[in-house]
């Protein structure tokens, strides 16, 4: 029901905007009172103005302006650990499609025999 939703949104925005304008008005009053030497009155106006501004700002941010963020799909850094069964050499490289644990890995740079993939894991949470 987009019409009903937009009407509710409009009413809410109007109320919040009115509260915000009123709060700004109070802040201006606070400034005038301060210039007039009325510190106590200025303090009251300031309090009301700030409270109204905080309340309207928070409500506006939480409801009307709040838009769903595009969720970032995590792309992990996945590593493949290879182990040479002959000389014990271990190597780590980024994961490639087709790699699987206990499957054949690259050739050992030391003894040139095919290594075994010992583990495939990702770093970080």
């Amino acid at each position: 029901m987009p019409t009903r939703r937009s009407l509710a949104m409009l009413v809410a925005t109007a109320i919040i905007t009115a509260l915000m304008v009123l709060s700004i008005g109070f802040l201006v009053q606070a400034y005038s009172a301060y210039l007039g030497g009325e510190r106590e009155a200025a303090l009251y106006y300031l309090m009301v103005g700030l409270m109204g501004l905080a309340l309207s700002g928070y409500t506006l941010a939480q409801t009307v302006l709040r838009r769903p963020k595009t969720p970032k799909s995590k792309e992990y850094k996945v590593h493949t650990v290879m182990h040479c069964l002959r000389c014990g050499f271990r190597d780590l490289r980024p994961f490639r499609r087709g790699d699987y644990v206990l499957g054949p890995g690259d050739n050992c740079p030391r003894c040139l025999t095919p290594m075994v993939i010992l583990a495939i894991y990702r770093e970080g949470e």
């Binding site: 969720p71 996945v78 994961f95 699987y100 644990v101 990702r122």
Partner: peptide, 16 residues
Amino acid sequence: AKALSAAVKAFRDGQP
């Protein structure tokens, strides 16, 4: 839902 989203990528690439 986030976990399933990550699972989709793992199954796509064949990662443990």
